[in-house]
């Protein structure tokens, strides 16, 4: 298999070994990503604990429709990504391109919704800074919004990186680079994309669902 031979780097013995190394390497990277987000989650927990009411009031100023739609978009994009990896494992490059393009489309849709949401916050003077309008009953709402923008912002950066990575994968697949034996890059890109999804799975309840019943 000429493709396979080209894919094997010279310091590995077998493709199996190379794949296993890349797979575990990606999981190690994801562990570092968890720790990278940890500081923000820690901050969230501390201030949610300390400024309980402020957070409840401030969270009502977020738009749950945008949040829920975005969650649905990301969960669905995870499905199409998984299907893309599935196609790569079967060596169907065309299907890989198709599924990955759909995934990118979902990612772009996510960013559009996010942008609309940020714009709404901008209009309502809810972006921390000079123009921030304090909420009288919630003196520490500014911390909530700071965390909101830091967490969703960092997540959005990851989404954009994901779009870049997936584009490369689509391009490689279009050039017939993958087959049944060698499809590690698509698989790893998939892991990364699912991780981005998981971060959002937690951001959704923490930001939007705090105090919805009133």
């Amino acid at each position: 298999m000429p493709e396979t031979k080209r894919a094997l780097a010279e310091h590995f013995e077998t493709l199996e070994q190379q794949h296993q190394a890349a797979w575990l390497g990606m999981w190690t990277f994801l562990a570092t990503e968890i720790m990278f987000f940890s500081g923000l989650f820690m901050g969230y927990i501390i201030y949610r604990h300390t400024y309980f009411q402020s957070f409840e009031i401030a969270s009502r100023h977020t738009n749950i429709i945008y949040g829920t739609v975005n969650t649905a978009i990301l969960l669905t994009s995870s499905l199409t990504m998984a299907l893309g990896v599935h196609a790569a494992q079967e060596g169907r490059n065309k299907a890989v391109v198709r599924y990955i393009l759909i995934t990118i489309l979902f990612a772009a849709a996510f960013m559009v919704v996010k942008g609309a949401e940020y714009y709404e916050h901008f209009k309502n003077h809810e972006i921390p800074g000079q123009a921030f309008h304090p909420i009288p009953q919630a003196p520490q709402a500014v911390i909530f919004f700071y965390l909101y923008f830091a967490m969703t912002g960092l997540h959005a950066v990851h989404v954009m990186v994901g779009i870049g990575v997936l584009s490369v994968m689509a391009w490689l697949a279009a050039r017939q680079r993958f087959d049944r034996v060698y499809n590690t890059p698509v698989e790893l890109a998939g892991l990364y994309w699912h991780f981005v999804d998981i971060v959002w799975i937690f951001l959704y309840p923490l930001i939007y669902l705090i105090d919805r019943h009133t």
């Binding site: 190690t28 562990a31 968890i34 720790m35 940890s38 989650f41 820690m42």
Partner: peptide, 17 residues
């Protein structure tokens, strides 16, 4: 490998709390 990151996150949260 998948669990390690979460375990360490728990260490951080527990002890900071």
């Amino acid at each position: 490998f998948a669990g390690a990151g979460f375990l360490w996150l728990m260490i951080m949260i527990t002890l900071t709390l």
